[in-house]
Simulated assay, not measured.
Amino acid sequence: MKNYILKDENAVYFESGFSCDNVLFLRLGSEGFFITDPRYSTEAKECVKSNIEVIEARDLHKQAREIIRKSKINKLFFNPSDLTYGDFLGLNKKLNIELTPKKEFSKQMRIIKTDEEIAILKEAVRLGREGFKTLGEVLRVGQGLSEKEIHYRAKECMSFKGEYDLSFDPITAINENAAKPHALPTAKNLKKDDLLLIDAGLKYKRYCSDRTVTLSFDDGLDIENREQKFKNKKWQEIYDIVLKAQRNAIEKARIGMRASEIDALTRSVIEKAGYGKYFVHSTGHGVGLDIHEYPTISAKSDVIIEENMVFTIEPGIYLDGDMGVRIEDMVVMRGGRAEVM
């Protein structure tokens, strides 16, 4: 694609090396234009890539229209989930070009990560693991903490007390609340032998990490150990099935597979065990500047998996009113197969 406009902060950052909350980015052939207001223009001039022109403007739409007119292009692509209807009207005002919607084209451009991006993502994952370890120390004496208190502690630990931004608001769910894949924290208190699900991540240089642990709250609490032991036999059965499903996908995922085939590697294990209808989401999603990127690892995805793609593998089983288990790690496709980051 040669001619397009962006507003989304992460999409703009990918193009220019800088972003802010009031920007329009134009790519017209080999030329790039970062249009922003006086609050951000000085820093933008210091931070954007050298081949991109920073333009200060009070009316971003008017400035964009002037640049587009001078370029004499006849078609400009935009992401319909990026620009608002107001943006569309502002850009299209007295502008005789074809504004063409193309869904999530920036994410498509970012689907294969560079070696530099993978190094940053690996550091994000490493820091995320350290955050989980710190949270594990808190939980060792966590009996009586509510889901809301654990949620607060998770934010504190995962951000290293504010040093890093979070990838998303953490999920902290006990027993039956863990049956909700995106559970909101409640006043429910943590007791001995409870099941606790925690989904959290942080950002390093704007790139996200994402990890989910499901653990048994007992005297031997180990947040890092995937071999969790539950006193409740049913919970143990479910946990072992989910772990087997995740490991099956990690071990067998290969370059050249369709994303749907990787989804089948987790789903088939869970279906064979009789819990297929309780696996209610896709196997995974790409991770990068956004917490949800391409490729989508789902039963409907025909995307061919390629070297340097990064995504999660996170099967789950959710039994309403009882419990839920999800086990999630990020992987990068390297040397033809999945490498846990």
Rank of each mutant, 00 (worst) to 15 (best):
R267L: 04
D82G: 06
E271P: 00
R69Y: 09
T186V: 10
N232L: 00
D210V: 05
T212R: 00
D199E: 14
A200D: 02
V54C: 06
I120F: 02
K93H: 14
K72C: 05
A200H: 07
E98C: 11
G144H: 09
V213G: 05
G274H: 09
E137P: 02
L197S: 15
L135M: 06
G90E: 05
A200Q: 03
I304A: 03
V287G: 00
E147I: 11
S50W: 03
Y204T: 12
I241R: 07
R129Y: 14
G316T: 05
I241L: 01
L76W: 07
S260D: 07
K72D: 10
M257Q: 05
H61M: 03
V242E: 01
F88A: 08
A264T: 00
H281L: 12
K229L: 09
L166K: 08
G201K: 04
R254S: 03
K2M: 07
F33T: 07
Q236R: 07
K70Y: 04
E176H: 15
Q228E: 13
I112H: 09
K93S: 13
S301R: 02
D165C: 11
I5P: 02
K2W: 04
G17M: 04
T114W: 04
Y40W: 15
K205T: 04
A273D: 07
K122W: 04
E237R: 13
I35R: 09
A179E: 04
Y318Q: 08
Q63G: 02
S298C: 00
V23L: 09
E261W: 00
R267K: 11
I118A: 08
D193K: 00
I35M: 06
F14N: 12
G335Y: 02
R69C: 07
R211M: 14
R153L: 14
L319D: 01
K244H: 08
E104W: 06
G336R: 00
G220L: 08
G335A: 03
A183Q: 09
C157F: 06
R140M: 10
E104R: 13
F217N: 01
R206I: 06
P181L: 13
D21W: 12
Q236T: 10
N175D: 14
G144F: 10
M257R: 02
V325P: 03
L202G: 08
L190F: 07
V310N: 05
L26I: 02
S16Q: 05
K252V: 03
Y294G: 00
I97H: 08
V310W: 11
M309Y: 13
L91A: 09
H281W: 12
V331K: 05
D263S: 02
M158K: 06
S41E: 06
F18W: 14
G128Y: 12
D115H: 13
S282F: 11
F168G: 04
I68E: 05
K191Q: 11
M330D: 05
E66D: 14
L221K: 09
H281T: 14
I313V: 15
Q236W: 02
K102L: 13
D199G: 14
R27E: 03
R129V: 14
H151P: 01
C47K: 15
